[in-house]
């Protein structure tokens, strides 16, 4: 089952490669564990190393071809990551000499109420966006996968389209739609006799507004992934279920959902990583400050404001690393929950 789903994932493009890297990592870890228990560890490692270098030299043209990615990653990815870790232990405004202050940035962060509010905001927005988004995406994929739908290519294209638009443009347009006075949404509500909603100033509505933007943008993306998953499910199981007279709902919950588990897990983890880093939507929507009640102040927006508006680069880096730990813990929790739920 596990093996099956793994090979199936290969077809899904870039998302699959991440999954495979992850599972390879787990595999490697197991191999390493085994090698630890063997007697001549260093010998094995040395041999392996020499072997690796010989291999690289032998295929140097190929390594040369793939090197641009690694060089660019080292310069624009790895170095900033390591440098931000270094910065998180410094006090630095970008101009003065850096001052090593140990864990003080982290200590300040733990007592910073605004930071904890930003963590709470981020989780609320994540919940309000991810749950409806994945649910709608799954239903849409299920519908698109049924034989009844015509023009399937068009629908797939249409649902995916929001994903390739500019987030800044999206946020500016949603900002106009959600405006309290003269906003289109409130005008429509007014037409139906519903009192206007203070979308951009009230914390609760601001968070819902941001969640709606995320849903609008990412539902199509998840639909495509689910659709690819659905299309690769073994047809025999469905046929057998139909012969046995199972209802659509029963088929969905007893066959589709369990078989889709690894794909759902993938989308949940991707939305967690994305959702914890929501930035552009609230930044544009609230003019950068997170709104009057700071309900739109997400962790990354707070990081940005401290680092690039207040020039507290050490503090900003500390926020980044706490965010990293939060995402790590949260992804692991998600894995556990999704696995438990669909077992």
């Amino acid at each position: 089952m596990e093996e099956n789903s793994k090979t199936r994932m290969v077809a899904y493009g870039h998302c699959a490669s991440i999954y495979i890297v992850l599972s390879d990592l787990i595999h490697d870890r197991q191999v390493n564990k085994m090698s630890v228990s063997m007697p001549s560890v260093s010998d094995v490692v040395k041999k392996k190393k020499a072997h690796t270098w010989r291999d690289i030299r032998k295929h140097k043209t190929i390594y040369l071809f793939i090197s641009p990615f690694y060089i660019l990653f080292a310069v624009f990815g790895l170095f900033p990551i390591l440098f931000s870790l270094f910065l998180s232990f410094q006090a630095w405004n970008g101009l003065d000499r850096m001052k090593f202050i140990g864990l003080e940035n982290f200590a300040l962060l733990m007592g910073d109420g605004v930071f904890w509010q930003s963590v709470l905001n981020t989780f609320i927005i994540w919940l309000e966006s991810t749950i409806p988004m994945l649910f709608i995406a799954l239903v849409l994929a299920f519908i698109l996968n049924s034989a009844l739908v015509k023009l399937r290519g068009f629908w797939r294209f249409a649902f995916f389209l929001p994903n390739v638009t500019s987030i800044v443009a999206e946020a500016i347009i949603f900002g106009s739609l959600f405006a309290t006075q003269y906003g289109l949404v409130n005008n429509v509500l007014h037409f139906f006799g519903i009192p206007p909603i203070d979308w951009l100033n009230n914390n609760v509505w601001l968070q819902i507004g941001i969640a709606i933007m995320i849903i609008w943008r990412w539902t199509g993306y998840n639909t495509i992934i689910y659709l690819a998953g659905l299309q690769s499910l073994p047809y025999e199981l469905y046929e057998a279920a139909k012969v046995d007279g199972a209802s659509m709902a029963r088929i969905f919950f007893s066959i589709t959902l369990p078989l889709m588990r690894p794909i759902i897990l993938f989308t949940v983890i991707m939305s967690t990583i994305g959702g914890m880093q929501v930035f552009t939507e609230p930044q544009i929507l609230t003019g950068g400050n997170g709104g009057p009640g700071q309900g739109g102040l997400t962790i990354v927006l707070y990081l940005y404001n401290q680092a690039f508006n207040n020039y507290l680069f050490g503090y900003g880096s500390a926020i980044a690393w706490v965010l990293f730990v939060i995402i790590l813990i949260f992804s692991l929790l998600n894995t556990l929950i999704v696995n438990r739920l669909s077992k």
Partner: peptide, 19 residues
Amino acid sequence: AANIPQWTTSWSAGAANGG
């Protein structure tokens, strides 16, 4: 005060429509 922030389309609408 109208509670319309500057640099928004609402502000433009308010300026044009006597808001």
